[in-house]
Simulated assay, not measured.
Amino acid sequence: MRLEGKVAIITGSASGIGRGMALALAKEGAHIVIVDINEEMGQKTLAEINQHNEGMLLIADISKKENVEQIVSDVVNKFGKLDILINNAHASKQALFVETTQELFDLSFGTGFYPTFHFMQAAYPELKKTRGKVINFASGAGLNGQPTQTSYAAAKEAIRAISRVASNEWGPEGINVNIIAPIALTAGVEQWSKSSPELYEAMINNIPLRRMGDPEGDIGRVAVFLSSSDSDYITGQTIMVDGGSTKLR
């Protein structure tokens, strides 16, 4: 129970990687606040969380700054503190570079970068009290410049940039800020693998460990580590949880 009594906000945690992290942290004793727009999936995940520890579901549009501030306030009012902030939610659409529009940038930055930034600002006073942990999300799409991912890659690299700044500014106050860049077998990826098996096999063959990551067993366990005292001397780092696909220098 490495996270017993800790309180964690995880955005986009009704399903996918967010759900995997929520379950992994809950099994280590953390109270999980699921923040999502999908109430049906959120309720299902909350029921799973409650089998391990008391959780909370907040249905909200986090692209609006006022909703972000209200979420942090509601969490502190219920649990009395905030120890862990995991900014996982992000939506985007693919397009060739020359076909990328302002609307696509607005979608990617509005659902990924700005909510991450606003949550970090809103949570800072509480994380300062608890010497807390922040986990943000990057992607190999940004690190490697994946085609058709202009708006997504830009937002993810912007998230890495502000994470490094915050790690320097907040380090003296005992707040750790790190980044996970994952590859995981979510429901969407699994559906794609069935409709495009040859493309899926080609992708697997480009992963040195020759498999997709498991949202709970692989990504979730790294999130547990970065949320626990075991990672107290790690901050400002991008952790590639991608089977060896990208090797940082």
Rank of each mutant, 00 (worst) to 15 (best):
residue 139 S to T: 11
residue 139 S to C: 13
residue 139 S to W: 10
residue 139 S to M: 14
residue 139 S to Y: 08
residue 139 S to K: 12
residue 140 G to L: 14
residue 140 G to V: 10
residue 141 A to S: 15
residue 141 A to Y: 00
residue 142 G to N: 08
residue 142 G to Y: 06
residue 142 G to R: 01
residue 142 G to A: 05
residue 143 L to G: 00
residue 143 L to K: 06
residue 143 L to A: 04
residue 144 N to P: 05
residue 144 N to Y: 01
residue 144 N to Q: 12
residue 144 N to M: 15
residue 145 G to P: 03
residue 145 G to Y: 00
residue 145 G to W: 00
residue 146 Q to E: 10
residue 146 Q to R: 06
residue 146 Q to L: 11
residue 147 P to Y: 00
residue 147 P to R: 06
residue 147 P to E: 02
residue 148 T to N: 11
residue 148 T to M: 14
residue 148 T to D: 03
residue 148 T to F: 11
residue 148 T to G: 00
residue 149 Q to F: 13
residue 149 Q to L: 10
residue 150 T to D: 00
residue 150 T to I: 06
residue 150 T to P: 02
residue 150 T to E: 01
residue 150 T to V: 12
residue 150 T to N: 02
residue 150 T to K: 02
residue 150 T to G: 01
residue 151 S to Q: 12
residue 151 S to R: 07
residue 152 Y to V: 15
residue 152 Y to A: 14
residue 153 A to R: 08
residue 153 A to K: 12
residue 153 A to E: 11
residue 153 A to D: 05
residue 153 A to C: 12
residue 153 A to Q: 08
residue 153 A to H: 04
residue 153 A to F: 03
residue 154 A to L: 11
residue 154 A to Q: 07
residue 154 A to V: 13
residue 154 A to R: 09
residue 154 A to I: 07
residue 154 A to N: 09
residue 154 A to H: 09
residue 155 A to W: 04
residue 156 K to T: 05
residue 156 K to C: 11
residue 156 K to E: 04
residue 156 K to Q: 06
residue 157 E to N: 15
residue 157 E to D: 09
residue 157 E to H: 13
residue 158 A to H: 10
residue 158 A to D: 10
residue 158 A to G: 13
residue 158 A to I: 03
residue 158 A to W: 02
residue 158 A to E: 08
residue 159 I to W: 02
residue 159 I to E: 07
residue 160 R to F: 00
residue 161 A to P: 00
residue 161 A to C: 11
residue 161 A to V: 05
residue 161 A to W: 00
residue 161 A to I: 04
residue 162 I to C: 07
residue 162 I to R: 00
residue 162 I to G: 01
residue 163 S to I: 01
residue 163 S to T: 11
residue 163 S to C: 07
residue 164 R to T: 01
residue 164 R to G: 10
residue 164 R to W: 02
residue 165 V to R: 11
residue 165 V to F: 07
residue 165 V to I: 15
residue 166 A to V: 08
residue 166 A to Q: 08
residue 166 A to I: 04
residue 166 A to E: 06
residue 166 A to C: 15
residue 167 S to E: 10
residue 167 S to Y: 01
residue 167 S to M: 05
residue 167 S to T: 03
residue 167 S to P: 04
residue 167 S to A: 15
residue 168 N to L: 15
residue 168 N to T: 05
residue 168 N to M: 11
residue 168 N to W: 02
residue 169 E to R: 13
residue 169 E to W: 08
residue 169 E to F: 08
residue 169 E to Y: 12
residue 169 E to Q: 14
residue 170 W to F: 14
residue 170 W to S: 07
residue 170 W to A: 13
residue 171 G to M: 04
residue 171 G to K: 05
residue 171 G to L: 04
residue 171 G to T: 01
residue 171 G to D: 05
residue 172 P to F: 06
residue 172 P to K: 10
residue 172 P to I: 09
residue 173 E to T: 06
residue 173 E to V: 03
residue 173 E to I: 02
residue 173 E to W: 13
residue 173 E to M: 14
residue 174 G to D: 07
residue 174 G to R: 14
residue 174 G to N: 12
residue 176 N to F: 00
residue 176 N to D: 06
residue 176 N to M: 03
residue 177 V to F: 02
residue 177 V to L: 13
residue 177 V to N: 01
residue 177 V to R: 08
residue 178 N to E: 06
residue 178 N to K: 04
residue 178 N to T: 03
residue 178 N to H: 02
residue 179 I to T: 15
residue 179 I to R: 03
residue 179 I to K: 04
residue 180 I to T: 09
residue 180 I to F: 08
residue 180 I to G: 14
residue 181 A to C: 09
residue 181 A to P: 06
residue 181 A to F: 03
residue 181 A to T: 04
residue 181 A to Y: 02
residue 181 A to V: 03
